[in-house]
Design a protein around this nucleic acid. Structure first.
Lengths: 156, 156
DNA sequence: CCTGAAATTATCTTAAC
DNA sequence: GTTAAGATAATTTCAGG
């Protein structure tokens, strides 16, 4: 699995995906060449899936976030999942155990748009039987460092 | 708000945060300098919060993901939230409306670690009264393009 | 598997238009 | 907004520990 140096590299890249190899190497205590090689190896191994940009939803007008538990007819689960992937306001979706079949996280600009999203768009996705909505009032924690998680898992 | 070019820039940066300004400019139909200026402006405006690396949890051994609805004593909500922020296995946390007070997303390496996480660690966080756990069996959709979401919100 | 240096190529950033 | 140019950085290669 990841050794200490890999975890340092991953942690640094999670913090700032655009750090230069020079700075990254210095930060993790390597010289540039092996640092570069490790990053490439992590990319090839699929540990690093890509580099992305964190956008502030509120800064572009998405003031409403909500979680929606969705129960469906499983005969049309493929069509449901395809529709979920296509819908721009559905931020994340997981198939879950428990009372509902899926957990969705969505964004909208306001309550009016949330109403429209639930009443008009979501309810008409393939197979949707029942939805239970919970508003996200505040984000306490956005995304963890998987490098820190890995270090914790090793210890504990 | 964001104009068409800004949205194209954001969409491209969400796909690949390490794209060169040369390629980015070509992709969005600008020359390098105005493209670079727009990116800086988006950073200064807080639209771009930073650049991060997508890690595959499964590739580093985190085979279990779960959502946990947590109800707490609100007198100790600050301590609870501080503990959540510190815990490496808590991936995300939102304060929510509904039956529970918070929704947590956690990762663990296996079921044994999940049991430990729930029974030993989570239950001992400040103020925790009740937890309801749901396993994430499969990720249907990871993270949206906020640029696409913004374009959708404008249209509809 | 590491270091260090050197050469090439690409990219960033600023300045002038 | 464009084009152009100097400063920086990325990437590859190689000799050596």
């Amino acid at each position: 699995m990841l050794d200490t140096l890999d975890r340092r590299i991953v942690a640094a890249l999670e913090r700032d995906a655009r750090v230069s190899f020079g700075d990254l190497a210095e930060e993790v205590g390597l010289s540039k060449t092996p640092c570069w090689k490790r990053v490439k190896a992590l990319e090839d191994a699929g540990v690093i899936r890509g580099y992305s940009t964190r956008i502030d939803p509120a800064a572009i007008g998405f003031d409403i976030e909500a979680f929606i538990q969705v129960s469906i007819d499983f005969e049309v689960s493929d069509a449901f999942e395809a529709a979920v992937k296509k819908h721009p306001l559905i931020r994340r979706c997981y198939a879950t155990t428990g009372e509902a079949d899926y957990l969705l996280q969505i964004v909208t600009v306001d309550m009016r748009a949330l109403d429209r999203m639930l009443r008009v768009e979501l309810s008409r996705l393939p197979g949707v039987r029942r939805t239970v909505t919970s508003m996200a009032m505040r984000e306490i924690k956005g995304d963890i460092s998987f490098a820190d998680a890995a270090a914790h898992a090793l210890r504990g």
